[in-house]
Amino acid sequence: MEKVSVITGVAVPLERSNIDTDQIIPAVFLKRVTKTGFDDALFYGWRQDPEFVLNKEPFKAGSVLVAGPDFGTGSSREHAVWALRDYGFKAVLSARFGDIFRGNSGKQGLLAAQLAEADIEKIWALIDAQPGLEVTVDLPAKTVTAGALTVPFEIDDYTRWRLLEGLDDIGLTLRDEARITEFEGRRESWRPTTLPVK
């Protein structure tokens, strides 16, 4: 996984709340068996509308999504994160995230930054006044800067550290393999196994 540090890019306002993962990527695209190439599927339903923000300049080339509260709720599909990443988004800013979406983002190097709702609205206003505005999301400093405005964001320390170091989860866990084996030795025999019965 690539290291994440300071991200600067065109901010894309998505002024809706409760954007669930079905809207980020409809179920029909989940049939693919690859882990990349989902850029065409991002917000597929909404992108059919020429007025949708990603169909308009200068937002087409955006890399920082500024969304309403409760972004990424609903289904656990990690494809939502792949689609955002493949499209070119590096960070999503919102006042609240769906838990699974937030977890998935951290694992794929997509920065899910939680801002105060009032700050999101300020950034929307700034973009409104200056479409194409570039914002800077500074992970070491945990701040977002848009024009003259600098506001803090929240991210849990562990995810932040892993993003900064670009660390792969499985490798980290396997450092504790001896303890996993030891735990397995203590498991009670009534616990289920899936081996066929009879």
Binding site: E78, N104, K107, I170, L172, T173
Partner: peptide, 20 residues
């Protein structure tokens, strides 16, 4: 609980999950 595909891979490889 439900998990994402990265976590599916993690469970397959380690039978554990790092969780808060």
């Amino acid at each position: 609980f439900g998990i994402g595909t990265s976590e599916v891979e993690h469970v397959m490889a380690t039978q554990t999950l790092p969780l808060k």
